[in-house]
Structure formats: C-alpha cells, structure tokens
Amino acid sequence: MTTADIKAEILDILEVIAPDEDLTNLDDAVNFRDQLELDSMDFLDIVMELRKRHRIQIPEDDYIQLASMNSTVAFLEPLMKDIQKV
C-alpha cells in the first residue's frame, strides 16, 4: 500500500468507528482527539480494525503513535508497505 492508500484506509476505518463524525475537514497534522469525539475505546478499535483487515499486530505501547493522521500513516508505512490494496 502507498502512503495515500494507507491514509484512505484509515479514513475508511474512522468512518466505520465514528459514523457521526464529519471527516472532510480533518487536519492531518492535528491530533484526532482534538478534532473528533474519540475515546480510548475508539482508539482500541482503530487497532482492532487494522488487525481484522490486514492482520497487523500493534503492541499496546505503540497506541500513542496513532495520535494524528500524519503520525498514524508514518507509523503504519513500514508495516503496510507489502500489503496489497484490495
């Protein structure tokens, strides 16, 4: 997956997790928490959705990497570069 694919995938996951949120004006540099109504359960769901969809395991210590879109994509790039986009 390319960087753009990964970003699109994260947006898709956010849409599933938080269907009431408007994601069109999401600022990639700003923490999700400061723009969206997400709690710790939702962050767990981002991790779980990645595992369900792509078999990626993210250790709990790394959850903080998922703070913003930019940090999430940067963290996932090495883990997802060999995954085929479906």
Binding site: V16, D39, M41, D42
Partner: peptide, 9 residues
Amino acid sequence: LARLLKQLR
C-alpha cells in the same frame, strides 16, 4: 448511548 452504538456498529 453514542458509545455503545459505535462499539456495536
């Protein structure tokens, strides 16, 4: 309520 709807999809 919002939390459970989200969590249960």
